[in-house]
Write a protein that binds this DNA or RNA. Sequence first.
DNA 1: ACCTGAACACCGTTCAAGT
DNA 2: ACCTGAACACCGTTCAAGT
Lengths: 204, 204
Amino acid sequence: MADTQRGYHHGALKAALIDATLILLKEGGIEAVSVREAAKRAGVSPGAPFRHFPSRAALLNAVAEEAMVRLTMQIDQALTQAASLSPLERYRALGQAFLIWAFENPHHFQVISTRAVIDFEGSGLRAANDKIRCQMRQLLNDAVSSGELVGISVEDALLSTRALAYGLARMNIDGQLQSWDIKSGDYLGLAQHLINEQIDRLKR
Amino acid sequence: MADTQRGYHHGALKAALIDATLILLKEGGIEAVSVREAAKRAGVSPGAPFRHFPSRAALLNAVAEEAMVRLTMQIDQALTQAASLSPLERYRALGQAFLIWAFENPHHFQVISTRAVIDFEGSGLRAANDKIRCQMRQLLNDAVSSGELVGISVEDALLSTRALAYGLARMNIDGQLQSWDIKSGDYLGLAQHLINEQIDRLKR
DNA sequence: ACCTGAACACCGTTCAAGT
DNA sequence: ACCTGAACACCGTTCAAGT
């Protein structure tokens, strides 16, 4: 974008590299991302990216942080819309927001979820992730306090919801949903339905 | 193993390469696997592996097929032991067997689950995977027939069990379980507990 | 039939030198 | 301050030539 690369200096190379990385990601998944190719797409020499990112992992990290921002926005927006609902219904809204984000931005989800390729600790990733977990826990605790949920372990419910949502999203990007559901092709709808059922089952 | 590489010809290069690949996998995950390094470890030139495997993906495929054999064995053994139990209890035994395999052989699980790196179609992988799904479906159908389960969708139950187990196993290899459960460190035990709870919930 | 070793087109990363 | 371009040590893969 806007890379009117008119001279020796690029001007907005950092952003251009992140854009190019996202394009490579969409073209061929995470292993198709190379610093050299991103540099070429940005019209710059192979060494240039290393002025802005210390490593390939750091470049992918930047994409991951962008992805996390979008996920956080999607969740915050869903929670705002659901503000008047009961705690468990807000929990449901949060789960649905995660699924929508993961299925509509599969490459972003792939980058965020594949540790080894990013530096999850440093940066804002860990903090943002923890914040989401805290929001989930808070909602479940509220649901217990209000009597909406009874006789459940909040930690167990939390992790099994998260693991189910994560599993569905991962099966989607790992090409495993394709072989399960021959019919509609509406994998997001199917995933949303299963999470809904699981949350319903928490109520007994 | 047994690679008394005494001359120009190796003798058991194919097996030696698969062994070396598994070691590389254990050392540094899937992206640490290189054909050249496997060749070096097997004491052979960089081009030699291509007499036995047409590509890096094919080499990883061979590891994946070995992994699938072990998974199938683990499941068959669990089902044999549970032969006298009710259909739903056999379903539970199958789920537990999957979790044990995935948590005790994380690198095997990683290779099998990461499409893009292997050729899941060709080979016996697809067939073995389909067989497991059929076994699961059969058990759930039997549980419905015998009245052990009522008022559930077999397809939904099937996929949500699978997605939960897959999600837990993936969170384990993606390093995401570490940040959730600070206590015991017994991630397999935790995963088994959550699957048990989910299966219990199917009974209402 | 199986393996070598050079070759090709790629990588990530570094670093002097240019602007 | 930012970028180039050559360099290094790696890749996957091919292929003539050796045994």
